[in-house]
Lab assay of single mutants.
Amino acid sequence: TTITITINGEELRIRGDHEEIHKILKAWEEDHNDEEIVRLIRELAER
């Protein structure tokens, strides 16, 4: 699965399995701050 998210003008492409993507979207849905979401995404992007 690949998704693209733009946060603060920075486009981040994430490839991951369903569970990893779900974790990010769940954090977003629960209204975590952008920095935390960006950190989760970067961790995935670095793999």
Rank of each mutant, 00 (worst) to 15 (best):
T1R: 10
T1D: 07
T1M: 14
T1V: 14
T1I: 14
T1S: 09
T1H: 14
T1N: 08
T1G: 07
T1L: 14
T2Q: 08
T2H: 12
T2C: 07
T2V: 11
T2A: 08
T2L: 13
I3K: 04
I3V: 11
I3G: 02
I3A: 06
I3N: 01
I3R: 08
T4Q: 05
T4I: 12
T4M: 10
T4E: 03
T4D: 03
T4S: 08
T4N: 04
I5A: 01
I5G: 00
I5T: 01
I5S: 00
I5L: 12
I5W: 01
I5C: 03
I5R: 00
I5H: 00
I5M: 04
T6G: 02
T6D: 04
T6Q: 07
T6Y: 15
T6V: 13
T6L: 12
T6N: 11
T6E: 05
T6M: 13
T6I: 14
I7S: 01
I7E: 00
I7K: 01
I7R: 01
I7N: 01
N8C: 07
N8M: 09
N8W: 06
N8V: 03
N8L: 06
N8F: 06
N8Y: 04
G9T: 03
G9K: 03
G9E: 02
G9Y: 03
G9A: 03
G9N: 05
E10S: 11
E10C: 15
E10H: 11
E10N: 12
E10F: 13
E11Y: 15
E11K: 15
E11C: 14
L12H: 05
L12K: 01
L12P: 00
L12V: 04
L12G: 00
L12C: 03
L12W: 15
L12T: 02
L12Q: 02
L12D: 00
R13E: 05
R13D: 03
R13H: 07
R13T: 10
R13S: 07
R13M: 11
R13V: 11
R13C: 03
R13F: 11
I14P: 00
I14G: 01
I14A: 02
I14M: 04
R15M: 08
R15W: 12
R15D: 04
R15Q: 07
G16E: 02
G16W: 10
G16H: 03
G16F: 05
D17C: 05
D17F: 13
D17A: 09
D17S: 14
H18S: 12
H18K: 10
H18M: 11
H18F: 12
E19R: 08
E19D: 12
E19V: 11
E19I: 08
E19Y: 12
E19N: 09
E20I: 08
E20L: 11
E20K: 05
E20M: 10
E20T: 11
I21P: 00
I21L: 11
I21T: 03
I21F: 04
I21Q: 01
H22S: 09
H22L: 13
H22C: 12
H22D: 08
H22F: 15
H22V: 10
H22Y: 15
H22E: 08
H22I: 07
H22P: 01
K23L: 08
K23V: 05
K23F: 10
K23R: 14
K23S: 06
K23T: 07
K23M: 10
K23Y: 07
I24W: 06
I24R: 02
I24N: 01
I24Y: 04
I24Q: 02
I24V: 05
L25K: 04
L25M: 08
L25V: 05
L25S: 02
L25A: 03
L25N: 01
L25F: 12
L25P: 00
L25R: 05
L25E: 01
K26C: 04
K26R: 12
K26M: 10
K26Q: 08
K26V: 05
A27P: 00
A27N: 04
A27D: 03
A27S: 07
A27E: 04
A27K: 12
A27L: 15
W28P: 00
W28A: 02
W28S: 01
W28G: 01
W28Q: 02
W28N: 01
W28E: 00
W28H: 03
E29D: 08
E29L: 12
E29V: 12
E29M: 14
E29P: 01
E29K: 14
E29I: 13
E30F: 14
E30G: 09
E30M: 14
E30W: 13
E30I: 14
E30R: 15
E30Q: 12
D31T: 07
D31Y: 09
D31E: 07
D31G: 13
D31I: 05
D31F: 09
D31N: 14
H32V: 09
H32R: 14
H32S: 10
H32Y: 09
H32E: 11
H32P: 15
H32N: 11
N33D: 10
N33E: 09
N33R: 06
N33P: 05
N33C: 09
D34M: 13
D34N: 14
D34S: 11
D34Q: 07
D34T: 08
D34C: 12
E35W: 11
E35P: 15
E35A: 12
E35G: 06
E35Q: 10
E36R: 12
E36M: 09
E36C: 03
E36W: 13
E36V: 10
E36F: 12
E36S: 08
I37C: 03
I37D: 00
I37A: 05
I37Y: 05
I37E: 00
I37Q: 01
I37P: 00
I37M: 08
I37L: 14
V38L: 15
V38A: 05
R39I: 04
R39H: 04
R39A: 07
R39W: 04
L40Y: 04
L40C: 04
L40A: 05
L40D: 01
L40H: 03
L40G: 01
I41M: 05
I41L: 15
I41A: 03
I41K: 00
I41N: 00
R42I: 09
R42W: 07
R42M: 08
R42S: 03
R42V: 04
E43Y: 12
E43I: 12
E43T: 10
E43D: 06
E43A: 09
E43L: 15
E43N: 08
L44S: 02
L44W: 14
L44Q: 02
L44Y: 06
L44H: 03
L44K: 02
L44E: 02
L44V: 03
A45V: 09
A45M: 09
A45G: 03
A45T: 05
A45Q: 06
E46Y: 11
E46A: 14
E46V: 14
E46M: 14
E46D: 12
E46G: 06
E46H: 10
R47Q: 14
R47P: 07
